[in-house]
């Protein structure tokens, strides 16, 4: 569709009424520039990084169907028994864009990264990306190249580790009679 012209385009997918466009990580800045200027996505809502370490490892089975597969009074209905779809790399970085027109349009530009892979910063496209990228660097350890001030923002400046990664423990103290921890 119309997103094919974005530089670095890999694939486009629609699920739950939302469009997700996968872009190569090193072309993401050009793609964002084109999205802002030509496609009219003038506002960057959010930049989110997700860590998929351990995804699908447990093999989810049992009831995980959508509304059409659920039956009210039969608890043994298994619905569809599926495993979650495997992801190409460990981290995904999602840019949520908004076009303020009638009807409004939202798109998610996504790129897949390995641990330590750098991605160009989009601060020059939308200045609001400044703190969003700092937050993802702080909590997830994604390195943005070309960011004017890539320092920790939510944790203390000398904190070690990136808390939101899956291999970082939840911390806290053990509490009696509670699970996990």
């Amino acid at each position: 569709m119309k997103y094919e012209s974005l530089p670095g385009f890999v694939e486009e997918r629609v699920s739950f009424g939302e469009t997700t466009v996968t872009i190569e990580p090193d072309r993401i800045r050009d793609a964002c520039l084109q999205a802002r200027d030509e496609l009219g996505f003038s506002m960057l809502c959010d930049i989110v990084a997700t860590d998929y370490l351990g995804w699908g490892g447990k093999g989810v089975s049992g009831y995980i169907a959508t509304a059409s597969g659920r039956d009210l009074n039969f608890p043994s209905t298994q619905g569809l028994q599926t495993l979650p779809e495997l992801k190409p790399k460990r981290f995904s970085l999602s840019y949520h864009l908004l076009a303020m027109r009638q009807p409004p349009e939202r798109v998610r530009l996504k790129c897949w990264l390995d641990d330590g892979e750098q991605v160009p910063s989009v601060v020059s496209v939308w200045p609001t990306a400044d703190w969003h990228e700092r937050e993802q660097f702080d909590l997830m350890g994604i390195a943005f190249s070309g960011h004017p001030n890539l320092t920790r923002i939510l944790m203390e400046d000398d904190w070690e580790g990136h808390p939101l990664r899956k291999d970082y423990p939840i911390g806290g103290e053990p509490v009696r009679f509670s699970d996990a921890q």
Binding site: M155, P163, Y168, P169, I170, G171, G172, E173
Partner: peptide
């Protein structure tokens, strides 16, 4: 006592 937050960042 730290309330409902038992994690890396909240003082218990």
């Amino acid at each position: 006592s730290g309330g409902m937050f038992n994690n890396y960042t909240i003082l218990q």
